[in-house]
Simulated assay, not measured.
Amino acid sequence: MIINARTAPVEREYLFIDGGCLRAAVSKISKDIFGNDEAYKPLLKSFATPDFHKIYYYDAIPGRNHNEAQAAYEARIQPEFERIEKIQMLDRVHVALGQIVGANRRQKGVDVRLAVDMMTQAFRGNITRATLFAGDADFVPLIEALVAEGLHVTLWHPPQANGQLKRAADSTRLFSFRSDLKCFASDDESPAFFLNPPGGQSEPPPDAHVVFLGDGRKIAGRWRGNSLVIWVHSGSFFWNTYHLAAPDCTLQAALRAFDALVNLGIADTAEQWIQT
């Protein structure tokens, strides 16, 4: 006797990104850490990980200003189109565009398109899980509807995300400089920083300037070839060694990045004792 049985659904997850929210999150983090909201920008290729079968990216192009000549408008938005074109070239990444309109620079046609696409993919059975990068309360009804249909929804959000939005999701993931370092870039090709896990048993060189921190720890550092090496001795038998690669970066920016990642509080004084 043959018994028909329902097969378990194939696990498949898509990532949906509110591009305006992502750019705003990176700008705010850049301002908080480096004092410049334009210091770094999102690196979309770092989002295209094997965790997601497809990535849908939603963004908006600035609209034409009143009395702005067509040629001037096209020249102004050309860099935006070039940025979007690079994103469209990434494998498994699909882009949908709206427009930025009005004095308050609101996105038009982005949120609705994102919501329709998420609902469509869910109802067609194409996905069993979805991750939404967003922070706006406008997405609360969307998440609540998808969760009610049995889809597992993860909200990947900036620190300032709406509280109700976070509560609506099945799970949340905070977007931060420390946990998402590879997503920050100064160009469209590679991350701005690479931090290797700390290793032990490597003492600073004999000519290093070793200083004492206020809590009794000893520390030394070297900046060479856009690479920052920090040695920290916390009273154990070994030194902990940190390596931060910072291509196209100043020493001060590298120190601020290091502080945000390791939290030693050395950025304001390190240039006095670090070896260059």
Results as ranks from 00 to 15, higher is better:
177 F>M: 12
55 I>G: 05
130 A>V: 00
226 N>E: 11
223 W>D: 04
123 F>G: 00
272 Q>A: 14
147 V>K: 11
110 V>Q: 06
61 I>F: 09
155 L>Q: 03
123 F>N: 04
121 Q>Y: 14
231 W>K: 02
97 L>W: 02
84 I>S: 05
183 C>D: 01
219 I>H: 06
111 D>Y: 08
159 P>W: 02
257 A>N: 07
58 Y>F: 15
235 G>T: 02
20 G>A: 13
27 S>G: 13
115 A>Y: 09
2 I>P: 15
24 A>E: 13
221 G>Y: 09
224 R>G: 03
196 N>Y: 10
238 F>S: 15
260 A>Q: 09
69 A>C: 07
78 Q>V: 00
11 E>P: 08
52 F>N: 00
256 R>S: 11
174 L>R: 10
137 A>F: 05
231 W>R: 06
202 S>F: 12
182 K>Y: 05
171 S>R: 15
208 A>Y: 05
241 T>Q: 13
116 V>K: 01
146 L>V: 03
101 V>I: 12
123 F>D: 05
214 G>P: 05
164 Q>L: 11
90 L>Y: 01
72 A>M: 11
88 Q>D: 09
63 G>W: 04
235 G>I: 01
275 Q>S: 15
21 C>G: 12
34 F>P: 02
115 A>D: 07
107 Q>D: 13
215 D>G: 08
137 A>K: 13
154 T>C: 01
259 D>C: 08
115 A>E: 06
216 G>K: 03
36 N>V: 06
43 L>Y: 08
161 A>I: 03
13 E>N: 12
119 M>S: 11
11 E>Q: 12
153 V>S: 01
253 A>Y: 07
189 E>D: 12
184 F>Y: 14
90 L>P: 04
73 Y>P: 08
168 A>E: 06
190 S>V: 04
51 D>Q: 11
35 G>T: 08
92 R>P: 00
66 H>L: 14
153 V>E: 03
148 A>R: 09
15 L>G: 07
113 R>G: 01
130 A>R: 00
69 A>T: 10
235 G>C: 01
258 F>P: 07
162 N>M: 05
223 W>R: 01
249 C>Q: 09
222 R>A: 14
87 I>C: 01
217 R>L: 00
196 N>E: 13
204 P>N: 09
253 A>T: 14
126 N>Y: 05
120 T>Q: 13
107 Q>I: 00
250 T>R: 06
58 Y>C: 04
55 I>H: 03
42 P>C: 04
119 M>L: 14
249 C>D: 12
143 I>W: 04
197 P>H: 07
219 I>N: 05
164 Q>C: 04
227 S>W: 02
136 D>R: 04
89 M>Y: 03
57 Y>S: 08
204 P>R: 07
